[in-house]
Structures are given as structure tokens and as C-alpha cells.
């Protein structure tokens, strides 16, 4: 399932958070979205998931306009927001059961196993650490095998074994034809897992590269170079 952003711009009053992004992301791709703090990553992902409406432009998931047909669009993606909102007085298992019923899906135990939440699945979410909350949101996002996974800083706060297990599971989903979009500000994470990297700086796409041909450290160098160039361009403007 593809994801298309056409001329997407988001302004909050005088502040332009995202400035005319054009992207076509193909199925079977692991896309890393990187950028400095305030680059527009979260705003872009919030627009993709229909939580924020673009000031201009359109976003389609599997050909469905996210804002014209919000219900159908939501059937096509699973998402983990930057700060996942969960029911505090539910256990992770109950929350997953709820989402599974909403999606008409099954596979709760698989989702729990993917994130390594199994042992804590019957504790209340309000007792969870940030990492465990993120694992719960990740497990929920994967229920029903949606064609597109939109993950905002979803690996932050995960312990190394869980992060490795999640990365492997996400890679398996990509190999099976899913599109995964993962935002992060950790360049090494992107270089390790992504097939394609989209770099944002000051609300604009400043690089869109395949990672396969990159040498270790090259992505970080590119990131810093493009960020500097973007800063210079803004100062001159």
C-alpha cells in the first residue's frame, strides 16, 4: 500500500511547520524520517495519520484521501504517536483486545510477543513505564496487519532486546509488503533499519536517499551537511 503526500504544507498562524512536501512512498519499503528537533517530523506524521489537517495539499494512503474518507484511511494504517494515548485503567491485553475488536482483527498474543510485553500484559497501563506504554501502542498498531505503519519515535525508550525484536519484526512486515515510516532523530537507527531515508530540516525535505549504498557514518555526515545548508538558506532568506 503506497503513501502519497502532494504539496503538503502546514502553518500555525505565522509559523510554517511543514513547507510543501511532495513524497511518494512505495509498499515494501522501510522509510526513515529524520530531522532535528522542530524539523516538522511529528507534524508530518500527525497529518499522515489524520490528526492534523494540512493547510494545503493532500495525503493519500492506498489511494484513499485521509481527510475525505477518514474511516477508510484508518483501516489502512496503524500508528504510534510520539506520546501514545492509552486507557490508563486497562491492561495491555484488554487494550489490545479492544483495538482488535475495533479492527476486526486477531493475533493479540503475536502482537504481545513482538514487543516482549507478555509478562506484563495483565498489569494496568497506568503502572507502565514510558517504554512499556510505547510497546503497548506498537503492539496495537500492528494488529490486523495494516498495510502502512506510521511510527513517531516509536523505538525511543525501548530496552535493547525489545528494540532489536521490534526492528526484526518490522523488517519482516516490510519484506511481506508493508510500508513502514519511522521518524527518529537518531541517525544510526535509520541507517541500521531503513531502505530509504527522508531528511527534514525546517519543514522541508532536504534529502531523500536510498541507504543501501551508504557507508557507515555517511548518513550522519549528509544529515549535518544538509542541516547546515538549510540554516544558511533560511538566514539568507
Amino acid at each position: 500500500m503506497s503513501l502519497e503526500l502532494r504539496g503538503v504544507r502546514k502553518a500555525f498562524g505565522p509559523v510554517v511547520a511543514v513547507d510543501r512536501i511532495d513524497l511518494v512512498l512505495e509498499p515494501g519499503t522501510f522509510v526513515g524520517l529524520i530531522g532535528h528537533n522542530g524539523a516538522g517530523k511529528s507534524t508530518t506524521l500527525k497529518m499522515i495519520t489524520g490528526m492534523l489537517r494540512p493547510t494545503e495539499g493532500e495525503i493519500r494512503i492506498g489511494g484513499i484521501d485521509v481527510f475525505a474518507d477518514p474511516l477508510e484511511a484508518r483501516k489502512r494504517f496503524g500508528a504510534v504517536p510520539e506520546n501514545p494515548a492509552l486507557y490508563e485503567y486497562m491492561t495491555a491485553r484488554e487494550f489490545l483486545q479492544f483495538i482488535a475488536e475495533v479492527r476486526g482483527a486477531s493475533g493479540i498474543d503475536d502482537a504481545l510477543a513482538l514487543t516482549g510485553l507478555g509478562a506484563d500484559a495483565d498489569r494496568l497501563i497506568r503502572e507502565y513505564s514510558q517504554g512499556m506504554r510505547r510497546k503497548t501502542a506498537l503492539a496495537a498498531a500492528t494488529l490486523g496487519d495494516p498495510g502502512v505503519l506510521v511510527l513517531d519515535e516509536a523505538l525511543n525508550g525501548l530496552d535493547p532486546p525489545s528494540a532489536a525484536s521490534v526492528k526484526a519484526a518490522l523488517r519482516a512486515k516490510v519484506d511481506a509488503g508493508a510500508l513502514v515510516v519511522l521518524s527518529t532523530h537518531v541517525v544510526e537507527t535509520v541507517q541500521a533499519v531503513a531502505d530509504r531515508v527522508v531528511m527534514l530540516a525546517h519543514g522541508r525535505v532536504v534529502a531523500d536517499e536510498q541507504t543501501a549504498d551508504m557507508k557507515p557514518g555517511e548518513l550522519e555526515h549528509l544529515f549535518l551537511e544538509r542541516l547546515e545548508a538549510s540554516r544558511d538558506a533560511r538566514e539568507h532568506a
Binding site: 490528526m51 474511516l71 477508510e72 484508518r74 492509552l86 486507557y87 475495533v102
Partner: peptide
């Protein structure tokens, strides 16, 4: 507060 949780999912 539930809107923040529910709006992400395909709930009629």
C-alpha cells in the same frame, strides 16, 4: 480525553 485515544483507530 478519549478522543485522543479513539481518533487514531477506524471506529465508526
Amino acid at each position: 480525553g478519549d478522543r485522543e485515544i479513539l481518533a487514531l483507530w477506524p471506529i465508526d
